[in-house]
């Protein structure tokens, strides 16, 4: 499916002062999907995004965005993408409208069209009433919405969102997710990076995890979570030995082991469907259950599994 990829990266390598930040990564993003790029600090995430958005010229490897090679035709790539940077990129002393106007002019959108799109976009992100407010007077969430509106006003084929919700309160974050889904539903491919695993899980069609300059895994959120293993049920009863006997042979139970308190039962399929049967079986045997708990692997588990637990940001 060559034609359906809107971003294609092959054997990308990048070295800063003799240190390899990116060591030969290959991945592709399909047209219309929300693709997340996860990785600890210093994993090579920013370098890759900077290359994809033409801010950093590629050294070796092939990178195509929206059908154009970033090294050979950076201007065509620039016209096809929108970016919401990780940190706030707003001129504090410009008004909301001026911020949009400046951006539209940078992309040479004709005046009439530009004014129309500014009005439309400000309506979408609910900032119409703040039109003449200087950006320094906006709240964190409003600033982020303005940046998203700005990134979208050029109608990009791909929107890069570099940690779009970091530092936002939970309510605002949920609103942002709605916007991102809306934008995606309207046909824009989204390239997302985030530190919030829950966010990646909720939004992404596919996720790649990068570490030490290499892509360590790629898949849908469900694929990644199930690749980690099975759901686990923690069960505490008045008589664990008897409960274990009773549960032997129940379909979908892979193994039963003793845990700190009670039993830990590994399920080979979806744990939430198996849980009622376990409870039923133990109760039918007349054993009183004092506590039951189902744990599914989360994206956090996936992330830690693939990138390890050591602290990053120490040393280089």
């Amino acid at each position: 499916m060559e034609g359906a990829d809107i971003i294609e990266v092959r054997d990308l390598e990048h070295t800063f002062n003799g240190i390899k930040a990116v060591r030969g990564i290959t991945f592709s993003v399909r047209k219309g999907e929300i693709f997340s790029f996860l990785g600890p600090n210093g994993a090579g995430k920013s370098t890759t995004i900077n290359i994809l958005t033409t801010l950093l010229p590629p050294q070796t490897g092939m990178v195509q965005v929206a059908g154009y090679d970033v090294a050979r035709e950076p201007d065509k790539v620039r016209k096809s993408i929108g970016i919401v940077f990780q940190d706030e990129v707003l001129d504090r002393d410009l008004t909301v409208w001026e911020t949009m106007e400046f951006h539209g002019r940078l992309y040479s959108i004709p005046r009439g069209e530009r004014r129309q799109r500014i009005a439309d976009m400000l309506r979408v992100v609910e900032l119409e009433s703040k039109r003449d407010e200087r950006t320094k007077n906006l709240s964190g969430g409003m600033k982020r919405r303005l940046e998203i509106a700005r990134g979208l006003m050029t109608r990009p084929e791909v929107l890069f969102l570099d940690e779009p919700t970091s530092g936002l309160d939970p309510q605002t974050r949920i609103r942002m997710w709605d916007y991102i889904r809306q934008v995606n539903a309207a046909g824009t491919t989204i390239f997302l990076t985030t530190h919030y695993m829950e966010e990646a899980d909720m939004l992404s069609d596919r996720i790649s995890i990068i570490d030490h300059g290499r892509i360590v895994t790629t898949g849908t959120p469900d694929e990644l979570k199930s690749s980690l293993g099975e759901d686990v049920v923690y069960l505490e009863t008045v008589d664990d030995t008897k409960a274990r006997e009773v549960l032997q042979g129940v379909g979908d139970i892979r193994s039963i082991t003793d845990s700190l308190r009670g039993l830990s039962i590994t399920i080979s399929t979806d744990g939430s469907h198996c849980l009622p049967r376990i409870v039923e079986r133990v109760r039918d045997a007349g054993i009183e259950i004092s506590s039951v708990n189902l744990k599914k692997p989360t994206m956090d588990d996936v992330f830690v599994h693939y990138t390890g637990r050591e602290l990053r940001d120490t040393g280089a």
Binding site: V89, L106, Y107
Partner: peptide
Amino acid sequence: NWGLMREMLASPM
């Protein structure tokens, strides 16, 4: 320093 340069450099300007 304020990152605003990136907006311009990543644009077709």
